[in-house]
Design a protein around this nucleic acid. Structure first.
Length: 293
DNA sequence: ATCCAGGTGATCA
DNA sequence: TGATCACATGGA
């Protein structure tokens, strides 16, 4: 992997096991917006960034060499060797080869804890397209205006302070639905620092998950996803409707099993690779509508 | 019209 | 512990 800068972009060459179309349609984030030219634009923290890809070469626009090396490489998970991860997964379960090939360019991003937490609370019993709209509503109404890029206005994700100051009605107007009270309660707790969200990554996985589950609107699945997507806890295996279906299909001869049992089975089987396996499975299951007619 | 969407919390046995 | 239900909202 080689990084350099030209007149219009920072260029990352030889980015293996990396496909922006896989990554940004994998449900990890609903904030990356696909552009007419097949690039993607997003606000991360308070920066607007645009990414495009040709073969193994990435082009990062509206940034600079220093930020790429200090931040974006890590954000995109480019500091992890996925060819080793894939190999180890296949050693454990060779029958996953077509699943891994299908989502071969997937990576787990390193996203902000707070934004990830609220996104996942909002995802409960919700559709991805609704989630995207709700998050857009929150950002454009209650985030900070960051600037304009290619004719679009971009906003940051609202702070804990901001969200906790909103009334339930104001939240409902953003179409959060019955999750209004979850958002209100959780943002209060984070504001008060009753749970030190930005230091949970320092705890072991179990304590980390236990802390997250204290929060309103955070159950087993949401806690797993937050830990995996923003705290580098990869020995967790989040089971949602898609994962349940495809796991039963692959490992349980299509017999119905409890979410708890599937989760334990996977973590026991895949250990520190659990979250990577989960990403490949989810991507495959959803793209191919596994278990649906 | 009815069901479902990257579930959670409350209630009851 | 384990099963059942309500919960906003909008698309299919």
């Amino acid at each position: 992997m080689r990084i350099h800068e030209n007149s219009s972009a920072v260029v990352i060459e030889n980015a293996k096991d990396f496909d922006i179309h896989h990554i940004f349609s994998s449900g990890q984030s609903v904030r990356w917006k696909k552009q007419k030219d097949n690039s993607y634009t997003c606000v991360v923290k308070d920066k607007i960034i645009n990414v495009s890809q040709i073969d193994d070469t990435l082009y990062l626009k509206n940034t600079n060499l220093g930020d790429v090396k200090n931040f974006w490489v890590h954000y995109f998970g480019l500091d992890i060797n996925y060819s080793i991860i894939k190999k180890e997964i296949l050693n454990i379960s060779p029958n996953l080869s077509h699943i891994i090939d299908f989502g071969s360019g997937l990576r787990i991003l390193n996203q902000d804890e707070w934004e990830t937490l609220i996104n996942l609370i909002l995802s409960a019993n919700n559709s991805m397209q609704m989630l995207e709209k709700v998050v857009d509503n929150l950002c454009s109404r209650y985030g900070d205006y960051i600037g304009e890029y290619e004719g679009e206005k971009y906003y940051s994700f609202p702070t804990p302070d901001k969200l906790s100051s909103l009334s339930l009605d104001e939240l409902r107007e953003c179409k959060v639905g019955f999750r209004d009270k979850y958002i209100k309660s959780t943002s209060r707790v984070i504001c008060n620092n009753d749970i030190d969200l930005y230091n949970l990554n320092k705890l072991d996985t179990k304590s980390c998950l236990d802390n997250l589950r204290e929060l309103s609107g955070v159950g087993e699945k949401v806690a797993d996803c937050v830990a995996m997507l923003s705290m580098k806890k990869y020995d967790v295996f989040a089971v949602d409707v898609w994962i349940k279906r495809i796991m039963e299909d692959i490992y349980f001869n299509n017999e119905s099993n409890s979410v708890k049992k599937i989760r334990l089975f996977a973590v026991d089987k895949f250990g520190d690779l659990s979250s990577f396996v989960q990403q490949y499975l989810f991507f495959f299951a959803r793209q191919n509508k596994v278990g649906k007619s």
